[in-house]
């Protein structure tokens, strides 16, 4: 069935783009704070709902709503870090990890209280999105999908430039490398961590609203996104941004190709990803591109 191949590749790219947005933030947080944020998928979910509230319920135009979503998510990240994670920064990494599980559940509960548990959609009745047919009809592409791909690429390039070339970006890398040394060098650790949280949650929020734009919103949408982002960063080697993007591509393509070309039904997509993840951990515990392996040995 080669005629469906272009479409599957396109879907794989779309999924990879969203996973990459969420996974890069997750890997940034891991690089700096050495903990895995189990609430990250839920940050994405909150982003999707904030956009729903602003653009659909209040009817704001998208060019106002999107910056507001970014601002809200960034603020949420900073506030959560200050209240819940800063006090336990010196504790072993299980403490923040369990706290982040609590935060994820809390965010889901709060969103359910405000929006209800039903599935929601950004689609306004009667409105039509532009659809483009390529390769003689074998590839159908919607306008919203193109927006997702372009936004993702722009954000990832922006993040790369920020980390490589800006002064704050260099501080971030210094803190990730060695927090104590960075602090001796006069880098403001608290501020740097806040910036990272702001960036990571904002990127997750954008990822959430993009996926909701393409599919639907539900309170539990973050769970699957989060675990796929874990899978992506483990595949790519934890703490490595390029690795997170590569991992996202592997997962995005992997799940779509398996569902497209094997008799396994689409419902099992997530289960397959996780089964492969566990298998991968068994065979290559440090990820495909893993280099920072020894530092994560259990002390």
């Amino acid at each position: 069935m080669p005629e469906i191949l272009p479409q599957i590749i396109w879907f794989s790219l779309l999924a990879s783009a969203i996973y990459a947005l969420i996974a890069t933030g997750l890997t940034l947080l891991f690089g700096i704070l050495n903990f895995i944020n189990f609430a990250h998928g839920d940050f994405a979910m909150v982003g999707a709902y904030v956009f729903f509230a602003l653009a659909i319920m209040l009817g704001l135009p998208w060019w106002i709503a999107v910056p507001l979503v970014i601002a809200c998510c960034a603020l949420m990240g900073v506030v959560i870090e200050k209240i819940t994670l800063k006090p336990v920064r010196k504790s072993p990494s299980f403490t923040p990890l369990i706290i982040s599980i609590g935060i994820g559940a809390l965010l889901q509960a709060i969103i359910t209280i405000f929006f209800g548990s039903g599935v929601k959609s950004y689609r306004v009745e009667g409105a039509e999105t532009a659809i483009y047919k390529l390769f003689g009809g074998s590839l159908i592409v919607t306008q919203s999908q193109i927006i997702i791909i372009i936004t993702t690429i722009l954000l990832l390039i922006g993040l790369h430039i920020f980390l490589k070339h800006s002064k704050t970006g260099k501080a971030v890398r210094a803190v990730a490398d060695n927090m104590e040394v960075a602090s001796i060098l006069g880098i403001n650790i608290d501020k740097t961590i806040s910036i990272i949280f702001a960036i990571a949650t904002a990127m997750a929020g954008v990822g959430g609203l993009l996926i909701a734009y393409e599919q639907n919103l539900s309170v539990t949408m973050g769970i699957s996104l989060g675990v796929k982002a874990f899978a992506a960063i483990i595949l790519g080697g934890v703490g490595n941004i390029l690795g997170a993007v590569v991992g996202a591509l592997v997962i995005g393509f992997g799940e779509n190709l398996i569902v497209g070309f094997t008799p396994i039904p689409a419902n099992f997509k997530d289960a397959i990803v996780f089964a492969l993840l566990i298998l991968m951990l068994f065979i290559r515990p440090n990820g495909l591109l893993g280099e920072k392996a020894e530092s994560q040995v259990r002390k």
């Binding site: 895995i36 189990f38 990494s93 675990v227 483990i234 289960a271 996780f274 566990i278 068994f282 515990p285």
Partner: peptide
């Protein structure tokens, strides 16, 4: 068998994956 030789973070994630499966 596949997870218990891993570092602790990975066990947390792999076991969450198990719940999901």
């Amino acid at each position: 068998i596949p997870t218990l030789k891993l570092k602790s973070h990975y066990i947390a994630i792999a076991s969450l994956g198990f719940t999901y499966i």
